[in-house]
């Protein structure tokens, strides 16, 4: 049994908007293992970004935790992330858990040199120990960037974020995020706005770092192709709920939930030109999600029970979970 590093325990995190309550995360339960890459997949508005924010303890109004815990396991300690003060959260960030957002400009200050932004991260490491000179700091950072395979580090450090291309900025962020060697790295669609060639470069770089250092990478993407390249395990979300969780191989070869099945089947593949079927309808509005299974209005295998009762998140085989009425505890399925 792999060692767990994080546990999301019965989490409900809602947005309290003027139009009503958006149940972005509803009854979320799962564990994350030490040293794995967990892919989180789903469409816009399914709650995957809210999940990442919650894991980073970034709960800002109108977002509120209604119920549940996020537990971090460090050696023999167990910490509930939601119970931490702002101060202790700040101490945790960068060093223990770090976050890489979609738009690099969200964490970078456009009018501050890359160097200065790196110094701030370095300061967190050297907190409490003796101060080092700027030149020493520069040396440490350049060496790190060189190790990461970034071209001409000294020139890079002197530039401003806006002078770099989107891909280069994202690589610098990746370097910042991994600089203090955090145990957990959260990445929210880190390559979505980038070109395919650049995307590949950054993904390969992320994977290489993760494989070498064995930190835990939690990776959000809407692109199943990207998950295939990156993930060890995959978590599929739909309308604020987890619908399926399992090893990548199992998910791609034997998807259980009809929604997962559809996500994988609908991917156009090079070399196959036959028509791929779409799925009817649209994702629901989370202000008033459908009764029972939230996927039932679009599900081709819908049964009576799906409209009435919410499916439980059950273990079907060793490490494969699904929330669907088509499956019983023993993993027998009935697509009838």
């Amino acid at each position: 049994m792999p060692e767990k590093i994080l546990k999301v325990d019965n989490c409900r995190v809602y947005y309290f908007t003027s139009r009503g309550i958006n149940k972005a995360l509803d009854n979320i339960n799962f564990e994350i293992y030490k040293g794995e890459i967990l892919g989180i997949a789903g469409e816009s508005g399914c709650g995957k970004s809210t999940l990442i924010k919650s894991l980073y303890g970034m709960i800002l109004p109108p977002l509120k935790v209604v119920e549940g815990k996020i537990l971090l396991f460090d050696n023999n300690d167990t910490i509930d992330l939601f119970s931490l003060s702002d101060e202790s959260l700040r101490n945790l960030r960068w060093k223990y858990i770090s976050y890489m957002p979609q738009g690099s400009m969200n964490v970078m200050n456009p009018v501050v040199r890359i160097e200065e932004q790196f110094f701030e991260v370095l300061d967190k490491r050297t907190e409490g120990t003796k101060k080092i000179s700027k030149n020493q700091a520069r040396e440490i950072i350049s060496n790190y960037l060189r190790d990461m395979g970034l071209p001409s580090p000294s020139k890079l450090l002197k530039s401003y974020p806006h002078q770099l291309s989107g891909g280069m900025r994202q690589r610098v962020i990746l370097a910042m995020v991994t600089f203090l060697n955090p145990k957990i790295i959260l990445a929210d669609e880190p390559t979505t706005a980038l070109d395919v060639v650049v995307q590949k470069g950054i993904l390969m770089m992320m994977k290489k770092i993760q494989r070498e250092r064995k930190n835990t990478l939690i990776f959000v993407s809407h692109d199943m192709g990207v998950h295939y390249q990156m993930a060890d395990r995959l978590l599929i979300m739909y309308a604020g709920k987890i619908v399926e969780l399992g090893p990548k191989k199992a998910i791609f070869e034997n998807p259980l939930h009809p929604y997962t099945k559809f996500l994988i089947d609908s991917l156009p593949r090079i070399g196959e030109k036959e028509k791929r079927k779409g799925i009817s309808g649209e994702p629901p509005d989370l202000l008033s999600p459908p009764h029972g299974c939230r996927f039932h209005p679009r599900c081709p295998y819908k049964k009576k029970i799906c409209e009435d009762r919410e499916p439980k998140f059950i273990k079907v085989s060793d490490d494969h979970f699904v929330a669907c009425h088509l499956f019983s505890k023993k993993g027998e399925m009935n697509y009838g």
Partner: peptide
């Protein structure tokens, strides 16, 4: 560079 399912980089 296409992230394709079935072909790992």
């Amino acid at each position: 560079s296409i992230p394709e399912v079935g072909k790992e980089w």
